[in-house]
Structures are given as structure tokens and as C-alpha cells.
């Protein structure tokens, strides 16, 4: 739709594949090295997030006043320390956990919300469909950052609210995709067949149509996920997202900005982590899209 910033990933390079349905496929191409690296990075990040308590050598608020602004490579503080002598590596590890937790929670929320609304629109049509589409138009008309800024500062800030807010990012894309897919699936034999057998609408949608549209929705998730990471870190960078003493990748960059001239490592470590993570998820998403869903190409 013209109202939505279509992700570049949804545009296609149709020269590369588009096997006609049922055509013979001799062998799958090997998984490219970049995808292996991206996958490895994502797995590493998830492990870091899960094991943050074990991995972090210090507490995120533990001060080491004799080693303030220690450069990277200092024994005991391999990524250096900040102005209060807090260990950058420990803060980075905990920030990865917080940022991934928010992004993952929000990505799931957005997918569930959007898919449900899309299915509702497809099922009821009429007024419900118009309302969903109108809300989607509204979401697309207002830049998400502006909307988030207004909601956040005016409702105060808690982690739960923040995750819910981030969960609004991209819902309208799932809703449009889910609605379109559900409409076309409803016309196919299998949906009509289970309906004739007496299945409830919920059963038709969630047990039959959802599995048949899952690959497209999963691919959309890999497109929305990096956007959520970037939005979260941007808001936290502005001081309006994750609040101290809690730390996230974005708020670390925001804090490090004050020490750009004297201690750039405070800002570089989380910045590089953000870049590599969004890059890795995008690469994985591109590859998954080629594999799972040629229609999105």
C-alpha cells in the first residue's frame, strides 16, 4: 500500500528464482557464509541474553572508583569502564538482555495483534474490516517515533508499557498481510472443507489458515524485529525509553555520547552491537524469505 513505508525486503529481484509451482528442484543451494555468520551472531546474542547473570563479571551499578574511564584492554575491564568506574562489558551484557527482551516481546505482541485483527477483518468484513483498515491507515499516517514520544512521556514510563508500545510497531503490516492471506485462503478448498465439517471459525483460522500463512508472517517478523530494536534504542538514546538504573543498548549509547571525546568506547561497544544485531537479523530474514516465501520477493 502506498501509505506504508514498504520495506525494501518486500520488493523483489525476480530474476533470481521464482520456480513455477511444482517445478523440479534439483538440489538446494548451499547456505551462504554470511547467513551462517548472521545465524551465529543471533544465537550468540540470545545466549548472552539468557546467561547474562553468569556472564557479567560485575554488577551494572558496581563502581570501581580507582579505575574510572579505563580504556578497553585494562585487565579486569576488557571493554573499559565509564565515568563512574562501571564495567562496560557487564553493562553491555545486561543491555543486550534488556534490549532483546523488549524487542522479542514487542515483536510477538505486534505479530499477534496484527494477525488477529487481520483475521477478524477477513472474517467479519463490513464495518469491522473498515475499522481495522482505518486504524492501519492512521498508524501509517503518523510516524511511529512521534506517536511513541507522545504516549511515553505522557503515560510515564514503565517497562511493561514500553514493551506494549513497541508492540504497536508494524502491527498494521501484519494486519494487511493476514487479511489478504485469509481472504485468499478462505476461497480455497481446505478452509471450506473444514468449515463444512463443522469447525468453529476460530478453529478454521488458527488451526488451518494460520499454519498455511505462517511462513509469510514469520518473514514479516524478521523485517519488523530490527525496526523494533532500532526504535527501542532510539527512544532510550533520547532518554525516553529504558530508564536508569536499568540499562539498554540505546541508553548506553546516549550515556556514552557525553564522553565521546574522552572515552568513545562507552558509546562504541553498544553501537556496534546494535548494528551487528540488526544486520544479522536482516540477513537471516532475506535468506528465510528466499527459502520460505517466494511470494514476498
Amino acid at each position: 500500500m502506498k501509505d506504508t513505508p514498504i520495506s525494501p525486503d518486500q520488493m523483489s529481484e525476480s530474476t533470481e528464482a521464482s520456480h513455477p509451482a511444482g517445478s523440479f528442484r534439483p538440489s538446494r543451494p548451499p547456505v551462504p557464509l554470511a547467513v551462517w555468520l548472521a545465524g551465529g551472531w543471533v544465537v550468540a546474542m540470545v545466549l548472552v541474553a539468557l546467561l547474562a547473570d553468569i556472564l557479567a563479571p560485575y554488577g551494572i551499578t558496581a563502581l570501581d572508583l580507582r579505575n574510572r574511564l579505563a580504556p578497553p584492554g585494562t585487565p579486569g575491564h576488557w571493554l573499559g569502564t565509564d565515568e563512574l568506574g562501571r564495567d562496560v562489558l557487564s553493562r553491555l551484557i545486561v543491555s543486550i538482555r534488556v534490549s532483546l527482551l523488549i524487542a522479542f516481546g514487542a515483536a510477538v505482541l505486534s505479530a499477534v495483534l496484527g494477525t488477529t485483527l487481520g483475521f477478524l477483518a477477513a472474517h467479519f468484513r463490513g464495518v469491522v474490516e473498515q475499522i481495522v483498515l482505518m486504524l492501519a491507515d492512521f498508524q501509517a499516517a503518523l510516524p511511529f517515533l512521534i506517536l511513541a514520544l507522545a504516549v511515553l512521556a505522557f503515560f510515564g514510563n514503565s517497562l511493561v508499557l514500553f514493551v506494549c508500545l513497541m508492540g504497536l510497531l508494524g502491527w498494521e503490516r501484519y494486519a494487511r498481510i493476514a487479511r489478504g492471506l485469509a481472504l485468499s485462503s478462505s476461497g480455497q478448498g481446505y478452509a471450506a472443507a473444514v468449515r463444512q465439517l463443522g469447525a468453529s471459525p476460530a478453529r478454521v483460522y488458527f488451526r488451518h489458515i494460520l499454519p498455511n500463512t505462517a511462513s509469510t508472517l514469520i518473514v514479516s517478523m524478521t523485517i519488523v524485529f530490527p525496526e523494533i530494536i532500532l526504535m527501542e534504542s532510539g527512544l532510550s538514546f533520547l532518554g525516553l525509553g529504558v530508564q536508569p538504573p536499568q540499562t539498554s543498548l540505546g541508553s548506553m549509547v546516549g550515556y556514552g555520547r557525553e564522553y565521546l571525546t574522552t572515552a568513545p568506547w562507552i558509546m562504541l561497544a553498544p553501537a556496534i552491537t546494535i548494528i551487528l544485531t540488526t544486520l544479522a537479523v536482516s540477513l537471516l530474514g532475506d535468506w528465510l524469505r528466499d527459502r520460505l516465501d517466494p511470494t514476498l520477493r
Binding site: 530490527p226 534504542s233 549509547v253 546516549g254 558509546m267 553501537a271 548494528i275 540488526t278 536482516s282
Partner: peptide, 11 residues
């Protein structure tokens, strides 16, 4: 796409 604007500006 992957470098956020606040990181790019600081760099």
C-alpha cells in the same frame, strides 16, 4: 538501513 541515525551522527 542497519546503522541507526544516532549512531551514524555520533560516528
Amino acid at each position: 538501513f542497519t546503522v541507526p541515525s544516532f549512531v551514524l551522527s555520533l560516528l
